[in-house]
Computed example of a mutant assay.
Amino acid sequence: MPLAPLPRLIVEPLVRAALLEDLGLAGDITSAAVIPADHCSLLVMVARQPGVVAGLDAAELAFHLVEPAITFRRHLQDGSQVSPGDIIATITGPSRGLLTGERTALNFLGHLSGIATVTACLVEAVAGTKASIACTRKTTPGLRALEKHAVRAGGGMNHRFALHDAVLIKDNHVAVADGVREAIRRARASVGHMVKIEVEVDTLEQLREAMEEGVDAVLLDNMSPAELREAVAIVDGRAITEASGRVTAATVAAIAASGVDLISVGWCTHSAPTLDIGLDVQT
């Protein structure tokens, strides 16, 4: 199925904030000084390296919010694979508006396409296993919705969006609650029947405690592939198994081969390199 776009109500405030940061108190004084008000141009947005496109809605809004007369024609959609030289979009309209909006548009598109690209690489690496790649809450403050959408564009899944989505009992919760059992019991007594409960475990003994209490998912933290295989056997389908920690492009296939359901990766959002995308005036 095609990737459903994020609602404009979510995307627009983020793009507006980025434009306001760039325009400051006086606007684009360079374009205003150099370019005649009635001049129009054509810009071509081109991929300069292979990857996966994401963030076109934000890029298009960056131009439209600056100058409604700009026309943004997409040649590709979010989730599309690109090779160097592929045209992503053509943008036409008043030259001042085009040059004012170009950096904000490229910032969003390059960053989000970078996230989609590394996610797609991880997804490809685990192909043929049951494991899905999921992102985490390790996102850029303010950009979580866009970054998680980019993960989906790359073929990945979203973990919880925020603290209110689900109960995730982490190691520090366990420490304060004085154990896995007590933490799970307190959580179950507090939340409603619609709220999922996941607990992070560092050892197989903690995992056995969690399964005795009953949870919806277990986060198997920093376990070796051999330990993960044993953990999957202990769970035996009674909960979703999620591997986390020490996940790299080199290790993800071995982690997936252990039989876990999910592999959560923080660096696909917080450390993905920007995809190189050019935006040049056609004379």
Rank of each mutant, 00 (worst) to 15 (best):
Arg74Phe: 04
Arg74Asn: 09
Leu76Asp: 03
Leu76Ser: 03
Gln77Ser: 14
Gln77Asn: 10
Gln77Met: 13
Ser80Gly: 09
Ser80Cys: 14
Ser80Met: 10
Ser80Lys: 07
Gln81Ala: 15
Gln81Glu: 14
Val82Arg: 00
Val82Lys: 00
Val82Gly: 00
Ser83Lys: 11
Ser83Phe: 10
Pro84Asn: 09
Asp86Ala: 15
Asp86Gln: 15
Ile87Cys: 14
Ile88Lys: 05
Ala89Glu: 06
Ala89Asn: 07
Ile91Met: 10
Ile91Gly: 05
Thr92Pro: 02
Thr92Ser: 15
Thr92Val: 12
Gly93Met: 13
Arg96His: 11
Arg96Asp: 06
Gly97Glu: 09
Gly97Pro: 05
Gly97His: 07
Leu99Phe: 15
Thr100Gly: 02
Gly101Leu: 09
Glu102Val: 06
Arg103His: 06
Arg103Asp: 02
Arg103Ala: 06
Thr104Gly: 02
Ala105Asp: 00
Ala105Pro: 00
Ala105Phe: 01
Leu106His: 02
Phe108Asn: 00
Phe108Met: 07
Leu109Arg: 11
Leu109Pro: 03
Gly110Ser: 15
His111Glu: 05
Leu112Met: 08
Leu112Asn: 00
Ser113Cys: 05
Ser113Met: 05
Ser113Leu: 04
Ser113Gln: 01
Ile115Tyr: 01
Ile115Gln: 01
Thr117Gly: 01
Thr117Ala: 01
Thr119Pro: 07
Ala120Asn: 09
Ala120Ser: 15
Leu122Cys: 14
Leu122Pro: 00
Leu122Ala: 07
Leu122Gly: 02
Glu124Tyr: 11
Ala125Asp: 08
Ala125Val: 11
Val126Cys: 03
Val126Ile: 11
Val126Trp: 09
Ala127Glu: 12
Ala127Asn: 12
Ala127Tyr: 06
Ala127Thr: 13
Ala127Val: 08
Gly128Thr: 03
Gly128Phe: 02
Thr129Ser: 14
Thr129Lys: 06
Thr129Leu: 10
Thr129Gly: 08
Lys130His: 11
Ser132Glu: 10
Ile133Tyr: 08
Ile133Lys: 05
Ile133Pro: 02
Ile133Asn: 03
Ala134Phe: 15
Ala134Met: 14
Cys135Ser: 14
Cys135Leu: 08
Cys135Met: 03
Cys135Arg: 01
Thr136Ala: 10
Arg137Lys: 15
Lys138Gly: 06
Lys138Val: 07
Thr139Pro: 14
Thr139Tyr: 08
Thr139Trp: 12
Thr139Met: 14
Thr140Asn: 06
Pro141Phe: 10
Pro141His: 13
Gly142Ala: 10
Gly142Asp: 15
Gly142Val: 11
Leu143Ser: 11
Leu143Gln: 13
Arg144Leu: 13
Arg144Phe: 05
Ala145Val: 12
Ala145Asp: 12
Ala145Trp: 08
Glu147His: 07
Glu147Ala: 04
